[in-house]
């Protein structure tokens, strides 16, 4: 429907544009700032004079990084983790959400399982038991320690479950009449019409795996096997408020001044995830169920 362009409408469009531009700029500024600092000279970066434009432009930090094996290795581990973890997560979420989306008459133990999973959302064993489980099951210091404990994300599963429940039953019934079994229904009907939900969950999962740092820190036995975010975390949390300084600490503080290098790594670390968004965005817009069924 096209509105007649009266003055009220014009003001709304103006305000809306201004507001959205502002929000966009606020989101973009930090990234531009990071990029500018990473391309500046070390002295300027340390003095905090770099704003949006590099001061004393240099590619030194990036050159150094490309030769620095730590960063590249951590980057590779993160990619592996995202690939493996996302696959496991998606399979688990879909396979769990489908049966739980059925009516109780079709799946008798449904209530029990829903409670069973919901319970884990509110109660956890805590850090120490989790650590001991990982240690005793022999997962410690392997990539599996990062993907198996969170293999089923209950929150995502509940989201997908609710989406499945919103799919008109007639679709499923029609498929059954045509002789489809549950796997066919899931694969041929539910998944194709659930693309928006799946894209959302996929995005959450990828971002979640990419950004996770804490598990890498506690389950890995040496910094050489850290994923990227754990590696970055250790870079930026140089202990500044050391209150009792020893000789060693003073020596170390000198190293902190490699600020451009830190920022360059943060920027590169955020880059892949920024690239994922545009690719998934189209699924948020299309693939809505409307129109599948005539009533």
């Amino acid at each position: 429907m096209i509105h007649k362009a009266d003055w009220k409408r014009k003001i709304f469009i103006l305000c809306n544009t201004l507001f959205l531009t502002l929000v966009t700029l606020i989101s973009i500024f930090p990234i531009v700032h990071l990029l500018a600092v990473s391309l500046s000279s070390n002295v300027a970066a340390n003095a905090g004079v770099v704003k949006m434009i590099p001061v004393g432009f240099t590619l030194e930090a990036y050159k150094f990084l490309m030769e620095k094996s730590d960063f590249l290795i951590a980057f590779g581990i993160s990619l592996k983790r995202v690939a493996l973890g996302t696959t496991i997560n998606m399979v688990m979420v879909i396979l769990t959400a489908y049966p739980l989306s059925k009516e109780k008459s079709a799946f008798k133990a449904r209530t029990f399982y829903v409670w069973f999973f919901a319970f884990t959302m509110f109660f956890g064993g805590g850090l120490v038991p989790a650590y001991i489980v990982i240690q005793r099951t022999g997962l410690m210091n392997t990539l599996w320690a990062l993907v198996i404990p969170g293999a089923l994300n209950v929150w995502n599963m509940v989201m997908l479950l609710n989406f499945f429940r919103g799919i008109p039953k007639e679709l499923e019934e029609a498929a059954i009449v045509d002789g489809a079994n549950h796997f066919t229904i899931l694969w041929k009907i539910y998944l194709p019409v659930s693309k928006p939900a799946l894209a959302t969950i996929l995005l959450f999962t990828i971002v979640g795996h990419w950004n996770a740092w804490f598990d890498g820190m506690i389950y890995m036995n040496s910094p050489a096997s850290y994923p990227l975010q754990t590696y970055l975390y250790t870079l930026v949390t140089q202990n500044f408020n050391k209150k009792l300084l020893t000789m060693d600490d003073i020596e170390r503080l000198k190293n902190v001044s490699e600020k451009t290098l830190q920022i360059a790594q943060i920027f590169l670390g955020a880059l892949p995830i920024m690239l994922v968004y545009p690719f998934l965005q189209k699924y948020f817009i299309k693939g809505i169920v409307v129109g599948s069924v005539k009533e």
Partner: peptide, 13 residues
């Protein structure tokens, strides 16, 4: 070594 960890995280690990 049973494990090593960056100094800042030593305490927790």
């Amino acid at each position: 070594y049973l494990w090593t960890v960056p100094d800042e995280q030593f305490e927790q690990k």
